[in-house]
Design a protein around this nucleic acid. Sequence first.
DNA 1: ATAATAATCGTGTATATACACTAAAATAAC
DNA 2: GTTATTTTAGTGTATATACACGATTATTAT
Lengths: 143, 143
Amino acid sequence: MKTENKKSSVCNCLNLRRASLAITEIYDHYLAPCQLSVSQFSILKHTHAMEPVSVSELAAEIRLDRTTLVRNLKPLERQGLIHDIAPPGTRNRQLCLTAAGRERIEQANAYWELAQKRIEAQLGQEDTKTLQALLLKIEVLAP
Amino acid sequence: MKTENKKSSVCNCLNLRRASLAITEIYDHYLAPCQLSVSQFSILKHTHAMEPVSVSELAAEIRLDRTTLVRNLKPLERQGLIHDIAPPGTRNRQLCLTAAGRERIEQANAYWELAQKRIEAQLGQEDTKTLQALLLKIEVLAP
DNA sequence: ATAATAATCGTGTATATACACTAAAATAAC
DNA sequence: GTTATTTTAGTGTATATACACGATTATTAT
């Protein structure tokens, strides 16, 4: 990922994928001290905002495939950051943060803000908004 | 991936990742008749343009992690679309398309163009360019 | 020519992603 | 209350992604 002379491809998809990998790399590095990827951080944040929440609801809100989320939850449960308080024998999971999970978010938030500022400093307020609007336009296209 | 009421997150990274997943889904569906993902199509196209090419060169051009590319090449080699013509005992691989690979690109190109047009029809010429420029700005930030 | 250095490549491991499929629970119809 | 339907969840499989590490080839210095 260390090539110079970067230039756009003609492929809109490839350009977006490259930018996504790049920004993910940036956020991941900022969050590394907390041992969280940006994807994991996102799951924690959304869980925090919606708890207790089912897998399906959470997936819909994050806009991840449900089965992807099922796998992504595993490391977070293993680390004791998220747990399920649904009584056994029921189908709806009720995912909640643990105390450790809440602590971790607190720490990670500070690093996340640094990453946010880094990006916005680079793009400027105006371009950041423009980008956001364009990305949403694309997202809406997906089935 | 079928949520309505989509709205932007405050997180620039998440927004980009969502858009990337969405556009990848779109291109993948367009390319499905050719049994290629957009990622695989991209590898084929770049190989075609650079052959014979080493793994490192190719990774740098596509801007994928080299070890990621090593794995991604496997299915394409298995399908007989790409092969390595480097003499045994040497270190530099010389990746080339096979005849089947060239054929496949030809087919896939038509579908890819449909996807391109779909996106550009939705965004318009102007916004497409704007988006491209902003994405490049982000890509350049990565280490 | 040999030793030191650099470039190139692959694997182990872990997470991320999604489609096809199955299974179980919850709800609705009757 | 039982049956039918819908909702919810998980697994098998395959690709995608990248870091840490090791190994081999190529190049450079001496």
